[in-house]
C-alpha cells in the first residue's frame, strides 16, 4: 500500500470570460456561464514512503493544482486521494499534521517577527510540547545553519536565508511527507547547493518522503530518484530518473575539433548534430556504439586538436517529452 495514492483525480475550474463593459460584468454576476478548464485531468499514481519525486511540467500544466489537492487546500472535482490513510480535503487538519509544505514564493513565517518566534508560534499551532519544539529548532538551526539570523525579523533576511528558514518551519512538527513547490526559485548557486544537500540528507537519513515541483533541472538531476511529468493536466511520463534519461536511447554527444576536416563515412547510429567551422557535434547511442570505438574511427581519417564528451542533459530530455506530446 503506497503512502500516497491518487486515482483518476480530476479538477475542473470554471473560467469566466467577461467580454468587458459594465453591462457584461453585471450579467456575469448572475449568469456564470464560463468555460470549464480541466486543470488536472484524470491522473493516477502511487508514491511509496521514502521516495524523492520530481513533479515536473510546463507552466499551467497542473502541478500546483495537484499539490494543492494533495495537501487538502483544494477539493477535487472527482477521483480519490489517500495520503497516509487520510483523504486530505475531508480530514484537512489531520492530514496537515502529517505534512510539511513550502511554497517557494510564499512565506509561512510572520513577516515582522524573527523566525525563532514564528517557530514557537507554529509549535503551538501544531500542539507540540514546547520542549520537543525547542529541541527540533536547535537541530534544524544546526543543520540549516540558521544561527546568524534566527533572531532578525524575516523582512530583513536574504532570499536564501528566508528559504532555509521556511524549510525549518515546514519541518518543525516532523512531518512524514514534505511538499516543495519551487524551493530554489531565484536562489544563487551556493544557496541552491546548501538546500539540495539538506534535502538529500533529509530524504536519506530521516526517510522523509519528498515531492518537489521545479523548473530547475539541476534540482531534478541532483535530487529526484523518480520523475512524474504532467502537461495539460495529464501525466505524460512517470519513471525513475535513469529510465527518463534513457528514454530516447542512451544518447551522448561527442564534440570534436579537427585540425583539418576531410569527409569520411560515419559509423551507423551516429549523426552530425551541427558543425561550426572545424568543430563537429556527433550524437550517438552509447548502447549501440561505444565512445572509444567512435573516437578511433574518427582518428583513422583525421587528426584532431580537441575533443570532449557530454551526456544529454535532462533538460533536453524533458523538452523532448513536452515536444513529443504536443506533436502527437
Amino acid at each position: 500500500m503506497p503512502l500516497i495514492r491518487v486515482e483518476n483525480l480530476k479538477k475542473e475550474f470554471r473560467v469566466h470570460k467577461t467580454s468587458g463593459g459594465m453591462m457584461n460584468s453585471v450579467k456575469g454576476l448572475f449568469f456564470s456561464r464560463g468555460e470549464v478548464v480541466n486543470a488536472v485531468d484524470d491522473i493516477s499514481f502511487g508514491i511509496e514512503k521514502g521516495e524523492f519525486v520530481g513533479y515536473l511540467g510546463p507552466n499551467g500544466a497542473g502541478k500546483s493544482t495537484s499539490i494543492k489537492m494533495l495537501t487538502g487546500i483544494l477539493v477535487p472535482t472527482s477521483g480519490d486521494i489517500v495520503v497516509g490513510g487520510i483523504t486530505p480535503y475531508r480530514d484537512r487538519k489531520l492530514n496537515s499534521k502529517n505534512i510539511g509544505v513550502v511554497f517557494g514564493q510564499r512565506t509561512q513565517l510572520w513577516w515582522d517577527l524573527p523566525p525563532i518566534d514564528s517557530y514557537k508560534l507554529l509549535g503551538k499551532i501544531y500542539r507540540r510540547p514546547s520542549k520537543e519544539i525547542q529541541l527540533k529548532i536547535e537541530f534544524l538551526t544546526e543543520l540549516l545553519e540558521l544561527q546568524e539570523f534566527i533572531k532578525s525579523p524575516v523582512r530583513k533576511l536574504s532570499l536564501g536565508q528566508k528559504m532555509r528558514c521556511e524549510l525549518a518551519a515546514a519541518l518543525l512538527h516532523s512531518p512524514e511527507i514534505l511538499y516543495l513547490d519551487e524551493p530554489t526559485i531565484g536562489l544563487d548557486v551556493v544557496a541552491k547547493d546548501s538546500i539540495r544537500a539538506f534535502l538529500t540528507r533529509l530524504n536519506e537519513t530521516e526517510k522523509t518522503t519528498i515531492i518537489l515541483t521545479t523548473h530547475d533541472m539541476g534540482d531534478v538531476e541532483k535530487l529526484c530518484k523518480r520523475v512524474i511529468v504532467i502537461d495539460s493536466g495529464k501525466i505524460i511520463h512517470d519513471s525513475s530518473i535513469e529510465r527518463l534519461r534513457n528514454r530516447f536511447g542512451n544518447h551522448r554527444v561527442l564534440e570534436v575539433e579537427y585540425d583539418e576536416f576531410s569527409e569520411f563515412s560515419l559509423p551507423e547510429n551516429v549523426t552530425t548534430v551541427k558543425n561550426i567551422g572545424n568543430r563537429f557535434f556527433y550524437q550517438f547511442d552509447s548502447d549501440k556504439i561505444k565512445a572509444p570505438e567512435l573516437i578511433k574511427r574518427i582518428l583513422e581519417h583525421n587528426s584532431i586538436s580537441d575533443l570532449s564528451l557530454v551526456d544529454v542533459d535532462i533538460e533536453e530530455v524533458i523538452r523532448k517529452i513536452y515536444h513529443e506530446k504536443r506533436t502527437v
Partner: peptide, 8 residues
C-alpha cells in the same frame, strides 16, 4: 493556502 495547511 498557508492557513489551510495548518491543523487549525
Amino acid at each position: 493556502d498557508q492557513v489551510l495547511i495548518k491543523p487549525i
